[in-house]
Design a protein around this nucleic acid. Structure first.
Lengths: 197, 197
DNA sequence: CGCAAATATGCGTGCCCCGCAAAATTCGAC
DNA sequence: GTCGAATTTTGCGGGGCACGCATATTTGCG
């Protein structure tokens, strides 16, 4: 990557991170694009050269994680059975990105409040769908099924939905529970074909 | 329902329908709230008393359909196995609302274009999630599982994702295919536990 | 160095969404 | 029917967002 591109990357991350931090601290509606730009050291106009909305700047981290799941799955041995491979890929992707997260109660409460904003919900679901599409490609390769058929997309969609449910469940759990436990339980249900427990 | 409320209902539907028609005909960005309000015979300000955005006005039909699925499922015999009951409920809900749709190629192309708009994608996914939550409640009752646990939400999420995949697949299919065929194939995969075909 | 390409910025515009208060309409009791 | 209370509609105004366009600035390279 050239110097030019890596600087762009850093600006992008600074903007995204500033957007998240400010929105968690003050609430989505109490943050102006102007504030985010200032926190990242660029002009307000530049913000919209990187992201087409506040919500997109915040949700881009979710997209990165989704992409990483597909990447992890691609890197796994091709002869590994599908469900274990998926479970490990998801777990690995979350683990790899967990270090950056603040785990204080205060932060988590802020995140929960932030995620109630309609614009953010829509955007998160949208990036989830985009990640599902990438995941579907990998699954088609892995299972040898038609990439234009429904099967790979159905599996990817179910995995994406499972991650959403697990994440949501974990965020609401009181007292708090290790995320990996919740995630693996959810994926276990899925691997069992969602048969009634 | 009182006279007052039924009039509100009619206004709501007039606004939603006008929003859809205009957006399909001209494209989402080429329709102003002002146009929608005019087409429905109310003031622009009134539009936002009913819907908090253009996208919401359009997506509310999807929400209605989602709600209906939950209602159909609730109306089915409690001893029917889960997957067939779900499949029939989904099929029934789509069938019941199919009559109102324009099936011309022109219309369908317009719908496809409209659905590419980010704001609309987010909103559709959002209402899908809300419908999933209602569906989860019914599934919890039906399966006797903990409504606060993950299982009902996982099933509902998978069903919701399946419907999205089937709908999308059907919209892109060329030459066109009966929707019910696609839908039932998708649900069959799901009922099979998404095992590799 | 000096030029070409890429990026950042400033400015102006059109639109959206909502709060608020003032009309207008509806409903029920009499 | 009529009147008053409750509900709904409307107009106005404001704050903010997203983006097109032209200009300035920075960057990488010969």
């Amino acid at each position: 990557m050239g110097l030019r591109e890596s600087k762009k990357q850093r600006t992008r991350e600074a903007l995204s991170w500033a957007a998240i931090r400010l929105a968690v601290e003050r609430g989505f509606d109490n943050v102006l694009v102007e504030d985010i730009a200032a926190a990242a050291g660029v002009s307000p106009r530049t913000f919209n050269n990187y992201f087409s909305s506040k919500a997109e700047a915040i949700a881009t981290r979710h997209l990165d994680r989704g992409r990483r799941i597909a990447a992890e799955l691609r890197a796994r041995p091709a002869d590994e059975p599908l469900w274990p491979a998926v479970a490990e890929s998801v777990a690995a992707a979350f683990l790899a990105m967990a270090g950056e997260d603040d785990t204080s109660d205060h932060w988590q409460a802020g995140v929960r409040a932030m995620l109630e904003h309609p614009a953010l919900q829509g955007e998160v679901l949208r990036v989830n769908a985009r990640a599902d599409a990438e995941l579907a490609e990998v699954i088609a390769e892995r299972t040898g099924t038609d990439p234009a058929g429904m099967y790979p997309r159905l599996v990817a969609g179910a995995v994406g939905a499972t991650i959403l449910v697990a994440t949501d469940h974990w965020r609401r759990a009181t007292p708090s529970v290790p995320f990996e436990t919740v995630l693996r339980e959810a994926l276990r249900h899925l691997a069992n074909g969602l048969s009634t427990p």
